[in-house]
Every structure is written in C-alpha cells, then in structure tokens.
Design a protein around this nucleic acid. Structure first.
Lengths: 322, 322
DNA sequence: TACGCAATTGTATCAAGATTCGTCAGTTGC
DNA sequence: GCAACTGACGAATCTTGATACAATTGCGTA
C-alpha cells in the first residue's frame, strides 16, 4: 500500500519520521509494514540522495578573539578560522577550509556580481565540492571568471573546468573560461594564445571588472599534482623568483615577504589576473592554510592583497605571533 | 578560561570529526583521550545546541503535479504540500506544516518588508518554533506586525507575544504588538482600546502597509486552547456567523463557502486586520491543513484571500476533487 | 515454460552508539 | 570541618541501527 509510493517520496517520508519526528527504525518499520533493515537502507539512500543533510554549523564567534586580532593586525574585513584535525594533513585542511568557505559564500549576496575564480586551487575546488545547490533565482548577470589559464596535467585541467562549471551552476551564473595554458614559454606565444580564442579574450576582459576574487595563494614550490614546464613554470623559473626574494605567489604573481610584487619577465608569460586587477577592498578572498603556505599567506596579508581570509587555527595563531 | 566558549568549541570539534569526517566515536574518544560515552554525550549536546543540524529537504517537485493543479485551479502563486504522517493528528500536521513553512520563509527575501503575523495561530507558532536563526544583516526597516489582538487565556497570550518577538528577532526586524484584546464586547470599547495605547495604534496603522501577511485560517468552532467570551467570540456569536452562512474565518473575519466576506456587527468588535487590508497578490500566506480546516481553507481559496498555501496532502487532494 | 541473472527484501547477527550506574571532585550549607 | 548535594566522567551494559547472507521476486532470453 504505502509501498507503492515513488521511491523518493518514500525516502522522504521515512526520513521525516526518523529525523524530524525522532521515531525509532523498528517503529517506522512496524507502522509501514516493512522490515527494520529496509528502513535503515532507505535512510542511507535518503542521505545519499541529499534528501537528508547533516551539517555542522561553526557557531559564530567561536574563535572571535583570534579572528578579531587578525582583522586588526592586518586590516582585514573578515577572518574565518577552522579548527584543523591534524595540522600535518594538508589535504584534510584544504577540505575543511573548503567546506567552511562554502558556507560563508552561500550566505553572501553574489547575484549580479562578477566573480573571479581560481579553479586549479585545491582549497577552492574543495569549496565547490562542498557547495550545496541553492534555489536562488538564476541571474544571467552573474559571471564566474577563471582567473588563470590551464596549469598542470590534463586531468587537473578537466577537474578545473568542471569546478568552474559547477560553481557557476550552483551560484546561478555564467562561466567564462580561459581556454589557454596558464604559463607560456614566451611573451609572444602568450599574445598569440590570447588573440587566438574569443572566449578567452572575453574572460580576460572581464578580469578588469571583478567584484569578488577568490584567489589562490601558493608557495614557491611545485606542489604534487602540478608538473614543471609545459603549461607551468619550470623549476628554474621558480628558483629565479626565489632568488628575487619571492616567498609566495597569488595566482602565479610572485610577492616577497612584505607582499611587495616582484615584477619580472615571468609576468609576461602568465595568462591570468594581475595583482592590479584584484577588486577593491571587501572582495579579495583567499582560502588557504596549512604549514607549507604560512609564509605565502603572511606575505599576501602584508601586501593587503587579500582582505577576507579563511584559514586554520594554527596558521592564524602563527600569523599573530612575532 | 573563556566562560562557556570552551565546551562549545569542544562540541564543534567532536561534531566535525563525527559528522563531517565520519570518524567513529571510539576513535574520536581515543584520539582525544576521553571515553566513548563522553563523545556520545557531546554529540547529543551539540545537537541540542543546534551546532549540528539534520534537516530533511523535501525534494523540489515531489508533489509537483498536485501543486501545479492547485495553483491553476485556484489561481495561486505558490503551493507547498507536506506529507502528513497521520491525517488525524492535527497537532502533528501543524508542526509539520510549520516546519515546511519555516524553510520556505527562510528562503525568501523579507528585509525591508512589513510582515503581518498572526501569533495565535498554532501553525504559525510552529513556524516560528522551527525557524533557524540566520545571520542575515538586521534591517531596522523590516517590521513584524501582529494582525490581531490577544485572544484566549493568558498563557496563550504569552506564547503569542513570545512568538512574535522571536519571529522578529530571527528575521531581523522590529516587532509591532497589538496589546489589546482581539475581540471586544462592543464597538465603543473597541474604539476606546485602540485610542488607549500608542503601540497598538502604531501597529494598526502598519496594517495598511502590509507587504506580506501570514494569516490564520480558522473554522467556525472554538478550538481547544481558546475560550469563548472574554476576549474571544462567544458561542452565540459563532452560531450567529454560521447562521449567516460562514464556513470559516480569516483572522476572525468570517467568509462563506464561496469566500464572500460576511459583514456583520461582529466585525466592529475585532481589533485586527481586515480582509481589505491584506497585501496584494503574492503576499498572502496561509499555513493550514487538517481535516477540520478543509472547508475554511477552500472558502479562503475561492475568495482569493490567500495566494500562497502550505498544506497537507490530504487537504490538497480534497481541494482538487469536485 | 523454464532458466538464469540481477535487484530487492527480510532474517539473523554483529557493530556502533546510548544509557545506566557507581565513583569522584568540587560546592553548599550547617 | 564535615555531611549532603551536585554534576561530570568512565566502565560496563543494553539498545539501536547496519550488514552479511539467504530467500524471493521480476524480467529477459532460450
């Protein structure tokens, strides 16, 4: 009888009985005339189908003190701190930061804005993975612009493109892709690449009109999934940047320990946002944490290249020391 | 050290480990050096403290067909249907409807609006009970206006006032109370009561500027927590309304089976919103269901006094028959 | 029609999590 | 200063929920 309800309906019914009304599985089974095992499985399915969502809200002001200190110290508009489970597990930290960032972002008013996105950043891809679909009205005026061309191996490029697409879908905007390598072998090739593709030109033009930028902060090393050369900097180029004093980079624009941009011929090889193009105060987001990125994050803060930071507790505390 | 911050922090940490990372309670206990029992208790506490929220999303379009049919049939802008566990349990239905309505309402843009609220309605009080605090910026311009004076015993009046207050808090607006009985013994007393209190006058004035109204739909009987007489209609008055053809009432304004307002001297005894004051199309909300209210809901729909309905499946299907 | 394969469901069992109960530390009151 | 009280905690225990496995159903194919 009740069994001939459509599966989704049935799942919802059971889920509501279990979670909303707090009825035990056996009782649900009894009233519906099915076995307890089935109830258990239906609940699993409901969770799988995202009918049931269990979220852990990080209470506002949990880390209020540290957050405020950081805000004052570096003149930031917003700071969010996530407690890391294991300070050594950078992948885990990135996931956690991404989730937190997703919550923060979904609470923001983004429609109509032009949003720069760095799809190769792991933490930002985590963000997208954690974003929940919201039924906000789609606004065609909202644009999601990639802020850097492709970097790394083809697999990563796929992931990146999918992230941008999904991000745009979830936020209800139009994605603008940069379908060109992020790093090229010479300034001439770079020019050629830009003139080559209309979509890319459109995206690059949009970089001048960013309202919000989700930037990636990186070290001066080549991280795991990236490969030197090809469409990325070579080991030598990184070494050269370091010899100029670079301690980190923001979307592949190198900065020194004080956040001063280090201009070099490397800049002319990159297809992507420049530091000067970053939006005005209030729209410069970074999601970055973990020990390896500490120097880079500090430099970015010192240079005021970001004003909204989502990071882990350990990094936050180190940023406050000295 | 920090007063009650430490436990919350701990709860959050454990909750994140358990729910977000899916670690078993024993393992959490092991890594944190506490017992499994404590982990279990912390998780309960976290749920209690609303740090962990488990919500059952009613998938969009689950009842699409019935909802659309209802929309067309009665010219409604929105219909939401909730599956009732037990069609006989009116209290349960009200809770369910309230929860659903809370979800819908929280997805709406309400800031800056003037919102009429009927605090004695059980389903609307359920709505408030189910509303989650949202960290939307408080807008002083948002006003929550009571649409009816006090009815029923003192306890109910307390609950009503608290509901209105809480609703205003959660939505981020200012509450405007009507601190006067909802039903008076004569038109003269009514006038006197209105002129008596400045707050009440202010609230009543706001009723002319409603953007959204959350109305209560009622039968022509005296429901459990209400008492005849005093600040409510007497049995005789209800009987009189029925003899005029009333099958229900919207905030104590009687209507017949076709939704035609039944004007009588009873109207001059009520301190509250009039049907003419209801906002324009799109802002007339009703949360009502259960067998007893069917006639009244149908009448309200026929008269186009509401255009957004949240009801239960059984009522919805009955509304589509005949 | 019979057979085989896969998907679905229930039974029995096992693991995970909730709860009971006794202990202990910190408070209150006399 | 010493009961009596209160609340937090962990070990043991009991309950609840997940799962392995078997039975059953449904369906396409020979």
């Amino acid at each position: 009888m009740a069994t001939d309800l459509e599966p989704r309906r049935f799942m919802t019914k059971v889920a509501r009985m279990y979670y909303t009304h707090g009825i035990r599985q056996i009782e649900i089974a009894a009233t519906l005339g099915i076995s307890q095992a089935r109830v258990s499985r239906l609940l699993q399915a409901a969770e799988q189908a995202k009918i049931v969502r269990t979220i852990v809200v990080i209470p506002e002001g949990l880390h209020a003190e540290v957050e405020e200190d950081l805000q004052k110290r570096y003149g930031l508009s917003q700071v969010h701190i996530v407690e890391a489970l294991d300070p050594n597990d950078e992948a885990g930290i990135n996931r956690d930061l991404g989730e937190a960032a997703a919550l923060i972002l979904s609470a923001m008013q983004l429609s109509g804005k032009t949003i720069g996105f760095t799809s190769w950043s792991r933490s930002l891809r985590s963000l997208v993975a954690a974003l929940e679909p919201s039924k906000k009205k789609k606004s065609g005026a909202t644009r999601i612009v990639e802020m850097l061309g492709d970097v790394g191996p083809p697999q990563l490029q796929h992931d990146s493109t999918r992230s941008t697409q999904r991000f745009a879908d979830l936020i209800g905007g139009t994605p603008l892709f940069i379908r060109a390598p992020g790093v090229l072998s010479s300034a001439e090739v770079r020019e050629a690449m830009i003139s080559y593709d209309a979509h890319t030109r459109e995206a690059i033009a949009a970089l001048d009109e960013l309202d919000v930028a989700l930037v990636g902060i990186g070290t001066c090393n080549i991280d795991a999934p990236l490969e030197p050369g090809g469409n990325f900097f070579t080991v030598e180029q990184f070494a050269m940047a370091q010899s100029l004093g670079a301690v980190g980079q923001i979307n592949l624009r190198f900065i020194d320990a004080d956040g001063i941009p280090l201009e070099s011929e490397l800049d002319s090889l990159v297809i992507g946002v420049t530091l000067a193009q970053l939006p005005a105060k209030g729209g410069r987001f970074a999601v970055a944490g973990g020990r390896s990125k500490y120097e880079a994050v500090r430099a970015a803060l010192r240079g005021h290249w970001i004003d909204t930071l989502i990071t882990d507790m350990e990094t936050a505390e180190r940023l406050l020391q000295e």
